[in-house]
Design a protein around this nucleic acid. Structure first.
Length: 648
RNA sequence: GCCCUCAUAGCACAGCGGUAGUGCAGCAGUUUUGUAAACUGAAGGUCGGGAGUUCAAAUCUCUCUGGGGGCACCA
């Protein structure tokens, strides 16, 4: 029999008969290891203990102590155990697929009746029974015809379709958990009892299209989460509760920032507190862009169809546009306009006014552009996905050889803005030429290289996403990471030679001839609405002092001091601090509690002693204690803090 | 847009066939208070809109609108 040699993590080399399984290998090392083993890693691939190994390689035996391998197997086995439980309870349910995902797994079922929350509890109980039965897991490779015949006989049409979609040269692997059987590429645990019986929970039911295709039937997806221990599961559930506490929709209500109502779905009614955040952020961005050589413009929100036809949006983006028909008095037919979904065509119109010289380039044209997009109703989500929003948009008109330096300049600005706003880490993704594209290969080569060189020059880490660029040019996406580790794609940078072409933008070069400029679409925040949502969640409502809508509440302890309280408020306002008085007939405890819940960063309490000494008692949000300080010192300190990061 | 689900006072919720309740907020009074909820009182709701079933609907059915969880979408 042929021999193979396997290398172990400690560097040891051992020789085995070809076809040896990882279980055999584990047994050959130590019976105790064989008992603890859950899977193996062979040349980086996660393999089942039962699979035969035919070639040399580097092997490691995994146990429950191996984080990634254990979690993957637990979650994957639970997907199958759940599917088995469902079919044991409702034999007519059709099974589809059930992958591991995020902190758990899901499995999609086809069933006429919807699953209810009560059903989930019943399924969970059945799953625990299956786990406690410690049913052995076994696997076999079947040939295609046998597998298809088997599933046709069982009445599992989705499995038949799945097999037909698997490339012909791939082996079809069958798994059994006890008597229940499923098609699966594996690997799996050795028996169901290896799954921690108290480390999982079924979370919710949701609709999901078969194969992710909205023209195919909608299935019922059950989501579950799973961990190695009950403690890990509980920690995860607590984390979810904590995340819910920073939901911007909840905080928006509690802090009186904004509201939505059904007459204007997907559009924000900003309250005074929320609008202060918005204007503060916009003022900041305006200064930063001005400092980086941008000019600011403002363009119409309602524009005739002609422009959208010329820009290509009418053909490619119409279903996302709000169309406005107007009966004009003298017109033969109705005028058809659209609310702008993007600012770029309007910016080209501004560029096209007057003849431009190469000396005018690069021309960095910014607009806090109010856009409207008809987002599908199911996509709307608080401030994060709205139908009316304002972008921190700009278009840089430039020559081809300016692309690289403009890219580097933009990344530097973006990094500085993110840092000022409290986000220290972000990732760059470079999306390159897609299959369907316009433009020459040489041009794509040049522009892609310009972007990559620019990123390298700034030194920030990046990844390449092949084929994900726009049809007209490559793009950069910038994803920042928030305080609880979630990623948000905010910044974007796209190279576009297409729109200047369509809208006939040109400039006079040094050679006195007309040339076509490039257009760089770019945004740092994305939309103010969404970014403010992200800020609220990142800081759990406790915004940095300069962004906080209410910065200071000056609270009287006794009504005799109201005069001094009002005086302090006035002095704070005079030095640029957003201050308000609380002279209500309430105890100081009550006031402190209320304003703390309202996320006011600083409370200044005033009592008789403070008036006497011209001091204030300063308490910061989250602090247990207050400090008594001279008024003059506090005024100075808070005035400094109230300045935006770029003004310090 | 699709599946499931929800909609009761400003907010958080209870009521689930006999015609609406609790807490907090708000209002009025008492209290002058030292760092996360003082006390008392009187108010406050066409139970999301419309239709139907019923002697009777917040409660059951249908439908529309909006929200939530997902899926699809995000040139």
């Amino acid at each position: 029999m042929a021999q193979i040699s396997l290398t172990f993590p400690d560097g040891n080399l051992r020789s085995y008969d070809a076809g040896v399984t990882a279980a055999d290998v584990a047994q050959s090392i130590a019976p105790s290891l064989a008992k603890k083993a859950i899977s193996a890693t062979l040349d980086g691939a996660h393999i089942d203990l039962a699979w035969p190994i035919e070639t040399d390689g580097a092997i490691a035996i995994n146990t429950m102590a191996d984080d990634a391998a254990a979690l993957e197997l637990i979650r994957h086995d639970l997907a199958h155990i759940m599917a088995r439980a469902v079919q044991e309870i409702w034999p007519d349910v059709k099974v589809t697929i059930g992958p591991v995902r995020d902190q758990g797994w899901f499995y999609d079922f086809d069933r006429a009746e919807p699953f209810t929350p009560e059903d989930l509890a019943v399924i969970e109980d059945r799953m625990r029974r299956i786990i406690n039965a410690r049913d052995p897991v076994k696997t076999e490779i079947w040939d295609r015809a046998r597998a298809i015949a088997h599933y046709e006989a069982k009445g599992e049409p989705f499995k038949v379709e799945l097999i037909n979609r698997i490339p012909g040269d791939e082996p079809l692997r069958m798994y059994w958990h006890g008597d229940w059987q499923d098609l699966c590429r594996g690997p799996h645990l050795q028996h169901t009892g290896q799954v921690p019986v108290d480390g999982f929970k079924l979370m919710n039911v949701a609709g999901a299209y078969w194969l992710g295709d909205s023209s195919r039937p909608m299935l019922q997806r059950i989501y579950g989460v799973a961990f190695r221990t009950k403690a890990d599961l509980n920690a995860h559930l607590i984390m979810l509760e904590q995340a819910a506490l920073r939901d911007h929709r909840k905080l928006g209500r509690e802090m009186d920032l904004f509201h939505f109502q059904e007459e204007a779905p997907g559009r924000v009614f900003w309250h005074p507190n929320g609008w202060r955040i918005y204007t503060q952020l916009q003022d900041y961005m305006r200064r930063r862009q001005y400092g980086d050589g941008y000019v600011e413009v403002n363009t119409p929100q309602v524009v005739d169809r002609k422009l959208w036809v010329a820009s290509g949006h009418w053909d490619n983006y119409q279903e996302n546009m709000f169309i406005v028909e107007v009966e004009e008095e003298h017109a033969q037919q109705k005028a058809i306009n659209a609310l702008k979904p993007m600012n770029c065509p309007c910016h080209v119109q501004v560029f096209n006014q007057g003849l431009k010289s190469y000396r005018d380039l690069p021309l960095r044209m910014a607009e806090f552009g109010a856009c409207n997009r008809y987002e599908p109703s199911g996509a709307l989500h608080g401030l994060m996905r709205v139908r009316g929003f304002t972008q921190d948009d700009a278009h840089i008109f430039c020559t081809e050889d300016q692309i690289e330096s403009e890219t580097a300049k933009f990344i530097t600005l973006l990094a500085s803005v993110y840092s000022d706003l409290g986000f220290d880490s972000f990732e760059i993704k470079l999306s390159t030429r897609p299959e369907k594209r316009v433009g020459s290969e040489e041009s794509w080569d040049y522009v892609e290289a310009a972007l990559e060189n620019a990123i390298k020059a700034t030194g920030y880490p990046y990844e390449i996403d092949p084929g994900e660029g726009a049809f007209y040019g490559p793009k950069l996406d910038f994803k920042l990471t928030d305080a609880i580790g979630r990623q948000w794609q905010c910044g974007t940078f796209q190279v576009d030679p297409n729109l200047p072409e369509r809208l006939d933008a040109n400039y006079i070069g040094a050679d006195s001839a007309k040339h076509r400029p490039f257009m760089l679409h770019r945004a740092i925040l994305g939309s103010f609405e969404r970014f403010i949502g992200i800020l609220i969640e990142n800081f759990a409502g406790k915004l940095p002092f300069w962004l906080a809508p209410r910065q200071v509440v000056v609270a009287s302890i006794i009504s005799d001091v109201d005069g001094f309280t009002l005086e302090v408020v006035e002095k704070l306002r005079a030095v640029g601090v957003r201050a308000e008085a609380d002279t209500r007939n309430e105890k100081i405890n009550y006031k402190v509690r209320e304003h703390s819940l309202g996320k006011v960063p600083v409370i200044l309490a005033i009592g008789a002693r403070e008036v006497e000494d011209q001091t204030v008692s300063l308490r910061r949000l989250g602090d247990k204690h207050s400090r008594t300080l001279p008024l003059a010192e506090v005024l100075q300190q808070l005035a400094d803090e109230a300045r935006a990061p770029d003004q310090r």
